[in-house]
Amino acid sequence: MKNDKHPHISSYNQHITVLLVLLILTFITVAVSGLHFSTFSVGVALIIASVKGATVLTYFMHLKYESLFLKLIVAGVFLVYALVIVLTFTDYLLR
């Protein structure tokens, strides 16, 4: 495997950029929560958290540069995860 001999090395600058993006998103979440949108702000908070989570997975956890196999199993697990939560919660709501 050629990839094993020469793994992709993320640059220091990329890590700094990713951190800045994550910090900006954190401050947006904190600012939005102060605006008292009630139910709407839960959605915004969760969307921002998901973007932050995806950023951590893609760059810090290096998934962008991993094999297609690893990408697919991670995507598959998150799909199952979302389905379990959505289906169970829907079941609860419709009782």
């Binding site: 793994p7 090395i9 993320s10 640059s11 220091y12 890590h15 700094i16 990713v18 951190l19 994550l22 910090l23 954190t26 904190v30 929560s33 951590v56 760059y59 810090f60 290096h62």
Partner: peptide
């Protein structure tokens, strides 16, 4: 305390970056 919560968020995000950087360092 939302302030402590925010502070700890920043601390963890920075620490995540330093870990990622340390992997870059050993790879080099």
């Amino acid at each position: 305390n939302a302030f402590i919560g925010t502070m700890n968020t920043v601390v963890l995000l920075v620490s995540s970056m330093t870990v990622a950087m340390s992997v870059t360092a050993i790879q080099k």
